[in-house]
């Protein structure tokens, strides 16, 4: 085969043009693909946001309905005669400020205990070696997996006739009834078996395992004791995990109904619990018997109850997401 310089140059040129064209085409294809994908993504996210927000929006709008709007079929979403009467009555029947304050105090105390106890246990499991460690951590996982209703009856009986090794009976002559107080929940949380404590222990353990050992070694060489190291060095470094656990604990404790009704805690100390009785309260005290109208007050109450958690969540959301991303939920 004879090599012809001119021929080769011509072929190269045509090839060059071709690749330029191909590049252009692939770029256009790529761009339109990306555009299509983002439109698709937008539609999906919008749709699902609607699924989540739809009921919320309808609750908000209904909470402003007056009783005539409910039965007017032409009213949709925007009330013709908007009223804040629903809020006023719900506010009063919930005894809002008082109930909210005692609820928040209760929830905050529980959260604080939860963080301290769970982080201690998590640290113990992450950094120290002791006999039966694997088995005991298996038990932590078991407490996550085992549904709490399995233990509800014995626990109920335990707090109905509360006693520590027979000491209380010795002093007062009879066993203590701790039901209808907050004490059972606080005791259980103090002993690390409160609402979803197992999960928090797990989160802390994973997070502490991810921290470099050198920090502790440095602290140890500088003469810090184990407790000092834990409180002043490890806990300070675990802020993301602490935030994650705090938000989870705050929200779940605030929403919890299972333990509240199991221990029959006083309803004026717990706003979620009080909300569940508001319909009956309004029916009896205010003689509003129409269930459709009655529901409007519940809607207003729902907004009032959700608002505080929502505010806390929105404030902490940024740190919370960071915390989740950096903390050890991931193994």
């Amino acid at each position: 085969m004879k090599i012809n310089a001119g021929n080769i140059i011509a072929r190269l040129k045509s090839m060059n043009e071709d690749t330029v064209l191909l590049n252009k085409r692939s770029r256009v294809v790529h761009k339109s693909k990306a555009l299509l994908f983002s439109v698709f993504k937008f539609i999906i996210l919008l749709g699902i946001s609607f699924i989540i927000l739809g009921p919320v929006i309808s609750i908000i709008s209904k909470s402003f309905f007056s009783s005539s709007d409910v039965y007017n079929p032409s009213v949709f979403l925007f009330p013709i005669r908007p009223t804040t009467e629903n809020y006023r009555l719900s506010f009063m029947r919930l005894d809002y400020w008082k109930t909210l304050t005692s609820t928040l105090i209760y929830v905050l105390i529980i959260t604080l205990i939860q963080v301290v106890i769970a982080s201690m246990a998590g640290y113990g499991f992450a950094r120290f070696d002791f006999p039966l460690k694997k088995l005991l951590f298996g038990c932590v996982v078991l407490t996550i997996v085992l549904p709490s209703h399995t233990i509800m009856l014995p626990v109920y009986q335990h707090f109905r006739n509360f006693d520590i090794l027979g000491i209380i009976k010795l002093i007062t002559g009879k066993k203590l009834n701790l039901l209808s107080t907050e004490a059972p929940m606080i005791i259980m949380t103090l002993l690390g078996v409160g609402l979803r404590s197992g999960l928090y222990i797990y989160i802390f353990r994973q997070f502490f395992r991810g921290l470099p050992k050198e920090i502790e070694e440095a602290a140890f060489i500088d003469g810090a004791g184990m407790w000092y190291t834990y409180f002043r060095i490890m806990l300070v470094n675990a802020v993301p995990a602490v935030l994650t656990v705090s938000v989870f604990s705050l929200v779940w404790q605030y929403n919890d109904m299972f333990y509240v009704s199991l221990f029959s805690m006083p309803s004026n100390h717990n706003i979620s619990f009080k909300l569940s009785t508001i319909q009956a309260t309004i029916r009896f005290l205010d003689k509003i018997n129409d269930p459709v109208v009655n529901q409007l007050y519940v809607y207003a109450g729902v907004i009032l109850v959700v608002l505080p958690v929502l505010i806390i969540y929105l404030i902490m959301q940024k740190y919370f997401m960071e915390g989740v991303e950096r903390s050890g939920i991931v193994g």
């Binding site: 106890i117 201690m120 246990a121 640290y123 113990g124 499991f125 950094r127 120290f128 070696d129 002791f130 460690k133 005991l136 932590v140 103090l190 002993l191 690390g192 078996v193 404590s197 222990i201 184990m226 834990y230």
Partner: peptide, 9 residues
């Protein structure tokens, strides 16, 4: 110490 840390739980 490790055992002490997990004692409450």
């Amino acid at each position: 110490t490790g055992l002490l840390f997990i004692t409450p739980w």
